[in-house]
């Protein structure tokens, strides 16, 4: 577990590793080069957009759907809804990517549907058009990732004392007020926990991005993980790949430490 990580860190200080046998120690040269690489900065920017967008989307959709399932409806439709809504989580990334590619194809069902409803004038290449690719990718990522948060929020909602809601109702709070003054504060520890966890996962997410857009078109959806992969297995620049990987690792490590400290703090209360 530790050895490959150390190996990658070592590679990031060498030149032309793996491909040539006489690679030389270059110090921070790889890092310097990367600092002046505009694509690196694009991928950092994209990673942040993708991660923050996905996590916020997961939170909002997750809470909304959890509230919906938690509302007092008949237990049978409730169970059916819950099962259906968890489904996106169960498919592998390949299946998800292929499905969405079919649906979003310029001649796919989504384009026809949107055109029929008059929302778009002409067919859009959702994954192939630079101006919409990131937004489309976010939709797919949100669709794929909300169930975990929804399930977490649902169990959180179910553990809130019902009489607290009743007390608030008598105190004169409407649903909006109850949501922001009771529900959200009650869910706060769960929100922090899963948001941070989700941040860690999404930050280094690779398969979904690679399989849907491959980082493109152009560099429109290039994120750190796809950039690493491209360096390594497309350009065979393993030193550069290691360097990006180390940077990715550093960010992830910081988030993980935050998450673990948060968890520790909670158990101390």
């Amino acid at each position: 577990m530790i050895f490959p990580i150390l190996q990658v860190i070592e590679y990031s200080f060498y030149d032309n590793v793996i491909v040539t046998s006489d690679s030389t120690f270059v110090g921070f040269d790889n890092y310097k080069e990367l600092a002046f690489d505009p694509i690196f900065w694009t991928s950092i920017f994209n990673t942040i957009i993708f991660t923050v967008g996905s996590v916020v989307g997961h939170l909002v959709v997750g809470i909304f759907l959890a509230l919906l399932i938690n509302s007092p409806i008949h237990p049978v439709p409730r169970a059916i809804f819950r099962t259906l809504l968890v489904l996106p989580w169960l498919f592998t990334a390949v299946v998800v990517a292929l499905n969405w590619q079919l649906l979003l194809h310029p001649f796919g069902i989504i384009n026809y549907a949107l055109k029929d409803f008059g929302i778009i004038d002409s067919h859009v290449d959702w994954l192939g058009d630079e101006s919409v690719a990131m937004a489309t990718l976010l939709v797919i990522s949100i669709w794929r990732g909300y169930p975990f948060l929804m399930i977490s929020f649902l169990s959180g909602l179910q553990s809130i004392d019902k009489s607290m809601y009743e007390a608030a109702k008598i105190d004169g709070a409407g649903w909006f007020r109850i949501f922001f003054s009771i529900t959200i504060p009650q869910l706060k520890p769960i929100i922090y926990g899963v948001a941070l966890l989700d941040l860690i996962w999404t930050f280094q997410l690779f398969p979904l991005v690679w399989l849907t857009t491959g980082g493109g078109p152009g560099r429109a959806t290039e994120v750190l993980s796809t950039y690493t992969y491209r360096f390594a297995f497309v350009d065979f620049e393993f030193s550069k790949a290691s360097t990006v990987a180390v940077i990715l690792l550093t960010f992830t490590a910081v988030l993980t430490i935050l998450y673990l400290r948060k968890g520790k703090g909670k158990s101390e209360i």
């Binding site: 607290m164 007390a167 608030a168």
Partner: peptide
């Protein structure tokens, strides 16, 4: 109303 569980707002 005063509830059996008190139903105070813990936060």
């Amino acid at each position: 109303m005063v509830f059996q569980s008190y139903a105070l707002y813990p936060h």
